[in-house]
Amino acid sequence: MKVMRAAHWEHFPHDADVGVRGIGPTKEAAFEQAALALTAAMTELSAVAPATAIEVRCSAPDDELLLVDWLNAIIYEMATRNMLFSRYQVTIADGELRATIWGEAVDVERHAPAVEAKGATLTGLEVDRRSQGGWCAQCVVDV
């Protein structure tokens, strides 16, 4: 029997921007990993201390739009609080996502952010169960 790799994230190429992909044993884990990929597109994840917790909620009519909403909710918190986040805990029930996200204020010297995310797009958008079990959640983020 194939054993699925532990939850992880990766980037996939896009001509102008960056694709974020989260893979995990559950949909929630895949969403958490996609969020880590989002942060990693901007800075080194290990440089961001999970010091302050913030609650995030969003909802959408289907899983794919929920992923876009989730990533956009994080982008909004980053932009308005001037923070970066490095730890995510997600629960999803009946099309509603609730999450706690942990991070710290942007420190330009230490984080040296390469880009700022403008928004998650519907491009390359997929949320699905993989044949070997587990979930994949991905889309392109405009940076």
Binding site: P61, L65, V68, I75, Y76, K118, G119, L122
Partner: peptide
């Protein structure tokens, strides 16, 4: 800047749902 990004984000979703 952020204002345009947020408008784009919100209307992309609204238009996707409304079209469906």
């Amino acid at each position: 800047r952020g204002l345009g990004h947020q408008i784009g984000t919100e209307f992309l979703k609204k238009m996707a749902i409304a079209a469906a």
